[in-house]
Amino acid sequence: MPAMVEYIQTDSFFHRLNPITKILWTFAVLIISFLFNSPIPILVILLSNLLIALASGIIKQVLPMMKALFIFSFILILCQIFFVDEGKTLFYAIPYFNIGKVTDAGLNMSLVMSFRMVATVSTIPILMMTTPMTDMVVVLVEKLKIPFKYAFMFITALRFIPTLMGEIEQIMQAQMSRGYNSDTRNPFKKMVIVIPLAIPLLVSSIKKTEKMAISMEARGFASGPRSYFRKIVMGKADYAALVLLLTAILSPALL
């Protein structure tokens, strides 16, 4: 089972951008999504995310995530749409009894919230899938001055996802071969079932962490000032992208 957000190697325009540009892009999407208060412009941003994913060759991985986000946002809509009283009443969820009033203001607000959520959250996996972790760390430490230990913690956590997935698979097979039934659709039962998997996983990952710490120690980890093999520079494409982002942020003010 592949990890949710793993770097996917292709040679695309977006892959080649400086990680900083891409981080700024995620912030720009966030800012623009909050500047607008009607669903259409936010939908446009959402589509632009999809377009970037398509151009980067990661659309196959991004679409299922978008779908999951939409399901989640639909639940959020259901939680609040009936509680908006302002605006014209459009229809009722249960017409004959006039229960579940939906107004235009309510619908507008819900759509804005939902698109906003999907647009802003979906930038993160796109960023992760198009940026090698080591490059990310280099900019985080060298440009954004985040202490190396924290940046390292972050990438190792990501690096361990596939390893732990493999481990879970192994533990699950071991438990199943001894007659343990882990096959159920009931989410509450599933939670109880996961416990016998979680304990061996916890034990083995702590052991793995210790081994990794020893191996790092033997290679002089955190022994003093550190150098970086990768060098990341801003290219022409990065400056062009930054200008584009800036205009996009300023455009709602001009409109």
Partner: peptide, 13 residues
């Protein structure tokens, strides 16, 4: 130094 578990001593991707 090289250790037993290939998985646990590789830190990079």
């Amino acid at each position: 130094s090289v250790f037993q578990d290939p998985e646990a001593q590789i830190v990079s991707t």
